[in-house]
């Protein structure tokens, strides 16, 4: 069995999750604490990938990243980086595709931290930054873990967007979900089954771990 598609999927999911932590934490913080009404527009944009067919998202990302578009041309000219049908392009597409899976749990995590903890920190002379790092984030570890794991798992399960933006290049952009599709097309049901089973077990274990962690946390809180 060729494990390369697995590694590509895991690499893609790992990098996407890391990038989304960097983007998602400030974005979710802003969405959670901003009192202005126009933020609902941003909430809607963040949630779009939940309802759009991945092909729609993939199609527009493909258009924007293609060398014929301004952005794609800029990347090629100044960074010598082609974004369509490459791994880098897949990362960008995955970041958009998995954005709600990072931002939504983080947003509810931020809202779950009692505001008096934040105010107590300010009253002790601490800056917004120190308060975020030392008070808010450590008291929403459940949300951080949920966001990270859901993003990772969701990226692993990506299909439509990858196909549109990354194509199906073995060893480069052929992720596990596309390999399964390929094997089924070629009537290799045995291999398709092995790939699928591994993915199924992986997803089940990951989700069980998330629920177990959150269960333990709730139990610990009840005991206090």
């Amino acid at each position: 069995m060729d494990y390369t598609p697995f590694w590509i999927s895991i690499k893609l999911a790992g990098i996407t999750t890391a990038v989304l932590f960097v983007i998602g934490v400030p974005l979710a913080y802003w969405l959670a604490f901003n009192p202005r009404r126009y933020k609902v527009l941003f909430e809607a944009i963040v949630s779009l990938p939940l309802v759009l067919p991945p092909t729609v998202l993939g199609f527009y990302i493909l258009l924007v990243l293609s060398p014929e578009s301004g952005l794609g041309a800029w990347f090629e000219e100044y960074l010598d980086l082609r974004l369509v049908f490459t791994f880098e392009g897949l990362v960008i597409a995955s970041v958009f595709y998995s954005l709600p899976f990072m931002v939504q749990p983080l947003q509810s995590g931020f809202r779950s931290v009692p505001i008096t903890l934040v105010e107590a920190s300010y009253s002790l002379g601490k800056s917004t930054w120190t308060t975020l790092l030392r008070v808010i984030l450590p008291n929403m570890t459940g949300a951080l873990l949920t966001a990270g794991i859901l993003t990772f798992a969701h990226t692993i399960g990506e299909f439509g967007v990858v196909l549109m933006v990354g194509g199906n290049i073995p060893g480069l952009t052929q992720v596990i979900s596309i390999s399964i599709y390929d094997e089924v097309e070629a009537m290799n049901y045995g291999l398709a089954n092995e790939y699928s089973l591994i993915l199924l077990l992986f997803s089940f274990v990951i989700l069980s771990l998330v629920y177990l962690f959150n269960y333990q946390k709730r139990k610990a809180v009840r005991l206090l």
Binding site: P114, T116, L117, E119, A120, V135, P138, N139
Partner: peptide, 11 residues
């Protein structure tokens, strides 16, 4: 400042 609801950092 001391609040009614303690507001200690649980972590």
């Amino acid at each position: 400042m001391v609040f009614q609801e303690y507001s200690l950092f649980p972590n």
